[in-house]
């Protein structure tokens, strides 16, 4: 999952980014002014945008309006120090999905972020099950036939993304866009490397879970036919 944080307080943005990366394995981009934020939000396929309202150059509500005008459905969480009821109503009525006021509790904030992402993939249950594989997106615990599988951060990120879109063909470009932040250095066969590592860890007998390669199109995760 890839998140954009538009927040002019650089340290706050960094803290949020760190928390999202550490607890949710999200890829995070940070933008500290409104103009850059709007450009980023419109040009990348984010899974969630954390938006401050009072920003240099372009205000948060303006960014939100541009996004929704373009038909962009990305979940937006407004995180601001403006805490009056009118502000909250205006924020939600402008097309945001959630509204939090500063100072905030990091745990609650992270939980709201995960809930917004689940909802946008139409998976209200935090545990995604594919055959005997279960991926708990809230605790990041993956089990296969009741046995816990330990994954590296990038492997989990990839598995979670594929699992949320289980049954669909996911292209390599989509994976790159959703799992890596703007500054990540990717090399040409990075996806293949992570896919093959995942396959090894999931392939422990039948019936299992299969990550199939669809030539020229991408990958799909599905139950191994018995």
């Amino acid at each position: 999952m890839r998140v954009l944080i538009v927040e002019d307080e650089a340290r706050l943005a960094r803290n949020i980014a760190k928390a999202l990366q550490e607890t949710s394995s999200y890829a995070v981009d940070i933008s500290t002014d409104g103009e850059d934020g709007r450009h980023q939000a419109l040009s990348n396929p984010y899974d969630l945008i954390i938006l401050d309202l009072m920003l240099p150059k372009v205000g948060g509500l303006e960014i939100l309006a541009s996004l929704r005008r373009e038909g962009n459905r990305v979940p937006v969480l407004i995180l601001t120090a403006r805490d009056t009821t009118q502000d909250i109503i205006r924020g939600l009525d402008s097309g945001s999905d959630d509204y939090m006021t500063k100072p905030f509790n990091m745990g609650e904030f992270l939980a709201r972020c995960k809930a917004l992402v689940r909802r946008s993939y139409d998976r209200p249950d935090p545990v995604v099950r594919i055959g005997e594989l279960s991926v708990d997106t809230s605790s990041r615990i993956v089990t296969l036939r009741g046995r816990r599988i330990s994954l590296r951060a990038m492997e989990y990120r990839l598995l979670e993304y594929l699992a949320l879109r289980a049954g669909q063909i996911v292209s390599k470009a989509e994976i790159l866009e959703h799992l890596y932040d703007f500054n990540a250095e990717t090399f040409s066969n990075v996806i293949e490397v992570h896919i093959s590592a995942l396959r090894k860890k999931l392939d422990s007998g039948s019936p299992g879970v299969l990550i199939r390669t669809i030539r020229g199109q991408g990958y799909v995760i599905e139950e191994t036919p018995a």
Binding site: R11, L12, E22, A81, P103, N105, M106
Partner: peptide
Amino acid sequence: AAHELRTPLAIMKSTLQT
């Protein structure tokens, strides 16, 4: 004033919680 006071509080809190 509320905004100005809340912002550093929010940053401190987020730093410590992280």
